[in-house]
Simulated scan of single mutants.
Amino acid sequence: MLTCNAQHSSFEHALNAYGALKTPCFFMVSFDQSLWHIEPLNTPSGAVWYTLEGRGFFPPAPTVLNLPAALVKKPPSFEAYALMHARVQEEIRSGNTYLLNLTCKSVLETPLELEHLFYASHAPFRCLLKDQFVCFSPERFVKIADNTIHTFPMKGTIDASVPEARRQLLEDEKEKAEHVMVVDLLRNDLSRVASRVHVKRFRYLEEIQAGGKRLLQASSHICGALPEHWHETLGSLFCTLLPAGSITGTPKKKTVEIIQEVEGYARGYFTGIFGIYDGETVDSAVMIRFVEKEEKGFVYKSGGGITLLSDAHKEHQEMVDKIYVPLL
């Protein structure tokens, strides 16, 4: 097991070493790549629980789980959010960014522990770091199989109960522009590590359960061909692609700088990625839908993409809607 607070080159070199030997492992890395953890699949530490569409490690759930349905969420006020939104809009008008994923911390009150939240969720991608955080993500980052790399950016959300929700989401000019920008960004990112990159499926809708709500989210499927020796440079591949475009924005480098100035807190593992390398294939997910344990209690980190067409009221509501535990 390797855990480190060093710079991303250490994560890169460690994951390259696992890949070169084709040693199956679990890995995760934070948004800024300063925090990371890698452990062999055959000797799990127990400090990390995870599952990626059925593959993973976690202890069996207790026979009886008494899980109250209520979660009390206390997000930042609209006024506080609007100030951050206005600062991002200024940067957009100045040409410093065109799309920025703005996130916030919300206080979350629940009698449950992180382990309970992990068991309660039926999300396809879940990860828990003992006494620190749990995430239950609907968003895959990259999948690698048969020397082909796939990514599935998600951008665009609407309450499925809204009248004509599908049409509204697909025809919304702001959501459309945001999705196109993210697809273009991820296509360019994949082109740095793969050849013959193309969009296999564009802007399809999926329904997810968000606590008591049903949400529609828009995704696209992009893929490309990897060289046969990609295992030997597995860490370098991920460091080239990170941070994930769907939770940063474009242009990526400058947008990350703005995020760090505007958000006012360290994201840590939130919006980082975690994954499994089995010696032949890779699956990984973006760490969103994220509950973190702080000294004074739990916080929930969530957000959404801001463009020039964004409405502060709608973006604030989207940030609040994303505070949920799937199927709790």
Rank of each mutant, 00 (worst) to 15 (best):
T3S: 14
Q7A: 14
S9Y: 10
F11M: 04
A14D: 15
L15W: 08
L15A: 12
N16A: 02
Y18Q: 15
G19L: 12
L21S: 06
K22T: 15
C25Y: 04
F26V: 00
F27S: 15
M28S: 01
V29L: 13
V29S: 13
D32R: 03
D32G: 01
S34V: 01
S34Q: 15
W36F: 15
H37Y: 15
I38E: 05
N42Y: 05
G46C: 02
V48M: 10
W49L: 10
T51S: 12
T51F: 04
L52D: 01
E53R: 14
G54E: 07
R55C: 04
A61H: 08
V64C: 05
V64M: 08
V72D: 08
P75R: 00
P76Y: 13
A80Q: 14
A86Q: 10
T97M: 01
L100T: 07
P111Q: 05
E113M: 10
L114V: 06
H116F: 00
F118V: 00
Y119E: 09
Y119D: 09
A120S: 12
S121Y: 07
H122P: 06
H122V: 12
R126F: 10
C127D: 02
C127Y: 04
C127T: 09
F133P: 02
F133K: 03
C135Q: 04
S137G: 13
P138N: 02
R140P: 04
F141L: 09
A145N: 10
A145G: 03
T148I: 11
T148G: 03
T151C: 14
T151G: 06
F152S: 00
I158W: 03
A160L: 02
E164Y: 07
R166T: 15
R166A: 15
R167E: 14
R167T: 14
Q168Y: 08
K176D: 08
E178N: 04
M181T: 10
V182N: 10
V183I: 11
L185V: 05
R187E: 12
N188Q: 02
L190S: 09
S191W: 04
R192K: 08
R192C: 07
V197M: 10
V199L: 07
R203P: 03
L205Q: 11
I208S: 00
G211M: 07
K213T: 12
R214P: 08
Q217A: 06
A218R: 01
S219F: 06
H221A: 04
G224Q: 09
L226Y: 00
H229N: 13
C239N: 13
S246Q: 09
I247R: 04
E257R: 03
I258Y: 04
Q260L: 12
G264P: 14
R267P: 08
G268F: 09
T271G: 11
G272F: 08
G272A: 10
G275T: 00
I276M: 01
A285W: 07
V286M: 01
M287E: 03
I288V: 06
I288P: 01
R289C: 14
R289F: 13
V291S: 05
K293C: 02
F298D: 02
F298N: 01
F298H: 06
Y300C: 15
K301E: 14
G303F: 10
G303R: 11
I306D: 12
T307K: 04
T307V: 03
S310Q: 09
A312K: 05
K314F: 02
E315V: 11
M319F: 10
M319C: 14
V320H: 08
V325P: 01
